[in-house]
C-alpha cells in the first residue's frame, strides 16, 4: 500500500506544481472526456468499469496513467484512442467527437490521429523493421517511394536506421519497441497512446524508451498518453494521474 500511496503523493505534487517547461496549461485540451462511463457485461451481469469520468488532456502534454489491475486503465486508453465507444458521456479527441462515430469513421480517424505503442510491441514478425513502420502508410495515398522515405525518417528518429532491414526476431526487445514507436509516429499523429510501453523491458531499455518518448513530446510536440504500472516510467511524464475503481484521482 505504501508504494501506491507514494505514487499518489507524487502525482498530487506534480498536479499542484507542474514544471513550467513541460506543460502548456494555456493550450486547449486535445482530449476531453465529460461524464464518461463504460459498462461491460460479464455474462448477464453488468460491470461498471468507468463511471462519470471527466478528463482534459492539454495538447502537447505527456501524461502517465497509473492504477491497480482492473481499475479501467486500458479501457480508458481504448476510449481515448477511438478503439471503443463509451456507454455514457462524451469524448472529444483532436477535435473529433468520438462518442457516436461509426467504426469506419473511427478507423479512418485513428489512422490519421493516433499512434499506438503496445507492451508486447506487436510488430508483424514476417515484415522487416522498415516494412513494419511503413504499414500505417498503406492506408494513405502516398506512393511507394514516398512511403519508404517517411518510414526511414521515422526509424532515424528512433535511432534504428541501421537496422531497418532486420526482422523483429533479430532485434532486442528495446529495439523492437523503438520500431513500434517509429510505426506509431510515421503517419504524424497528434496523439500517441502507449499501453505499458516498458512492461516487457529491462530497466536500461525501458529508460531508453522513456527518453525517446520525452523527445517525441518535446521536439515533435506529440501529446502522449501512457498507461503504466511502473512508477519510474510514470515519473518521466509531465502529468501523473491515478485511476482507481473507475474514478480518476
Amino acid at each position: 500500500m505504501s508504494d501506491a500511496q507514494a505514487e499518489g503523493k507524487a502525482a498530487d505534487e506534480a498536479a499542484k506544481n507542474p514544471p513550467p517547461y513541460r506543460t502548456q496549461p494555456e493550450s486547449p485540451a486535445i482530449v476531453s472526456l465529460v461524464g464518461v462511463g463504460k459498462t461491460f457485461f460479464r455474462g448477464k451481469e453488468p460491470v461498471k468499469v468507468l463511471d462519470g469520468l471527466d478528463l482534459d488532456v492539454p495538447e502537447g502534454s505527456f501524461e502517465a496513467l497509473m492504477g491497480p489491475s482492473g481499475s479501467g486503465k486500458s479501457t480508458l486508453l481504448n476510449l481515448i484512442a477511438g478503439l471503443d465507444r463509451p456507454t455514457r458521456g462524451k469524448i472529444t479527441v483532436a477535435g473529433t467527437d468520438l462518442t457516436n462515430a461509426s467504426d469506419r469513421t473511427l478507423a479512418k480517424w485513428r489512422s490519421q490521429n493516433i499512434g499506438f505503442i503496445f507492451q508486447a510491441y506487436n510488430l508483424m514478425p514476417v515484415l522487416t523493421a522498415l516494412q513494419n513502420v511503413e504499414l500505417p502508410l498503406l492506408l494513405t495515398s502516398l506512393g511507394g517511394a514516398e512511403r519508404k522515405k517517411r518510414a526511414q525518417t521515422a526509424l532515424r528518429v528512433v535511432g534504428l536506421e541501421d537496422r531497418m532491414h532486420h526482422y523483429p526476431r533479430q532485434l532486442s526487445g528495446g529495439q523492437e519497441q523503438r520500431v513500434a514507436i517509429a510505426r506509431a509516429i510515421v503517419n504524424d499523429p497528434k496523439i500517441i497512446v502507449a499501453d505499458e510501453p516498458t512492461g516487457d523491458l529491462d530497466r536500461q531499455s525501458a529508460d531508453d524508451i522513456l527518453t525517446l518518448l520525452e523527445k517525441l513530446n518535446k521536439e515533435l510536440k506529440k501529446t502522449i498518453f501512457m498507461v503504466t504500472h511502473d512508477p519510474a516510467a510514470s515519473e518521466r511524464a509531465s502529468v501523473q494521474r491515478r485511476l482507481d475503481k473507475g474514478r480518476l484521482k
Partner: peptide, 14 residues
C-alpha cells in the same frame, strides 16, 4: 488474432 487487432487499431478496416 492479435495481429489483426493491431492492424485494425492502426486504422485498417474489417
Amino acid at each position: 488474432t492479435g495481429e489483426y487487432g493491431v492492424l485494425r487499431a492502426i486504422g485498417f478496416l474489417p
